[in-house]
Amino acid sequence: MLKRIIASLLAIALLVIPGCAVTDDVSSSYNSVVALSKSIGDMWLLAGGTLKGITEDGLELEGASDVAVVGTVTQPNLEAILELEPDLVLVSAELSSHAEIKAELDNLGIDTIAVAVNSFDDYDSYMKTFAEFTGRADLYELNVTSIRNSIDEIISLVPSAGEGLTYLAIRVSATKNKVLKNDYFACGIFNDLGLNNVVTDNSELDEISAEWIAGADPDIIFVVLHGQEDEAMDSFTQAFESSAFWGELTAVSEGRVFVLPKDYFQYKPNALWADAYQYAYDLIYEG
């Protein structure tokens, strides 16, 4: 009898102890991490990691104020990165300057991950990887799983009458106005909430004609400002609001033209995905 008890205790101990050891090993797997954009750095921090270096735009992140600067997001400085002796560098999969740096780092045998987040699912999968490196399953739970649950909840509230409303999403900057298509993450949010994008093609052409907008006459118009906000607003006013056809649009006459906040719809929302969904939902169904 005593032998059995001792054996059981041993078995339990053998099961528990390795679990603790494994956690320790994983969390010390990367000690010197450099992120080459604010959004990606944010994700790493949310997963419980620490940063040794980040690009200039990421300095405003919490927990990044005394991190070394390695250049700008469009032009990171390879030398500055290498000085920090990184063992992991997180780059964007969408910038050519990052691709070049990644190639060089790969040649040097330094681990790199190229990140491209165009939907919540993308965010989820990268966060999962990051959380495995940092060993913080709890943070994954907090910043991904529970957020996904909130999002699903919001989506479940979408009234069936919502199916069928159309929208047009445009990104406005001082130099250029372009329509946002379904591969853009914000459009993914709107589509999840039961709306239909009037722009359905997938070509790279993105400068839309006023005539076409008038013909499509969307129910809602979303505006995302890019770059200098004042200048972007001016450009928007000039290009659209002051033109003759604008007042004729349904969305305008019903007051459903919404200028969206950057933190949810221009930059990747990261931990704020659910807030983004909520914001959009409120605008569409309760605004």
Partner: peptide, 19 residues
């Protein structure tokens, strides 16, 4: 105009530099 995203590769080229 047809491939607006291709310009990002070219922007650095236009500016010139050895980085």
């Amino acid at each position: 105009t047809f491939y607006p995203n291709a310009i990002t590769d070219k922007a650095a080229f236009n500016l010139g530099g050895l980085s």
